[in-house]
């Protein structure tokens, strides 16, 4: 028997929310332990870096345009472009390159 699709959606949404707020229910004050503090400091950078590469190279029509978007994105962010501008530069890089490659 096929499960009701709306039940499925609500269960998926609720389980995802539980993961988001789990730490909020567990933690009452900042952790003093030096290792944990340091660990949590690096979590965002490592997570986002791992999610970006090599996924960005695989997301595009050809790996070359993805790799170019990565380099342009790093340079733009390095020289202080805003979130929005970095995203736009990456998109434009892929769009323009793939005009020639395809």
């Amino acid at each position: 028997m096929q499960t009701n699709i709306y039940l499925y959606i609500f269960v998926m949404a609720f389980s995802t929310w539980v993961m988001r707020v789990a730490a909020s229910f567990i933690m009452r004050k900042p952790i003093k332990n030096m290792f944990i503090q340091s660990f949590l400091y690096y979590v965002p950078y490592v997570t986002l870096a791992v999610m970006t590469f090599p996924a960005i190279v695989e997301a595009t029509g050809t790996p070359i345009s993805g790799a170019a978007a990565l380099i342009i994105g790093i340079l733009a962010a390095w020289f202080g472009a805003s979130l929005f501008k970095v995203a736009v530069f990456c998109c434009l890089t892929v769009f323009v390159l793939e005009l020639f490659i395809h």
Binding site: P44, Y45, L48, A49, M51, T52, A55, I56, A59, T60, G61, S65, G66, A69, L70, G73, I74, A76, A77, W78, G80, A81, S82, L83, K85, V86, A87, V88, F89, C90, C91, L92, T93, V94, F95, E98
Partner: peptide, 18 residues
Amino acid sequence: SALSVALFGMFLAVIIPP
């Protein structure tokens, strides 16, 4: 294809300046 790198661009904007 072009739009799909927007998210990654945002990730870079978050991690590269620090």
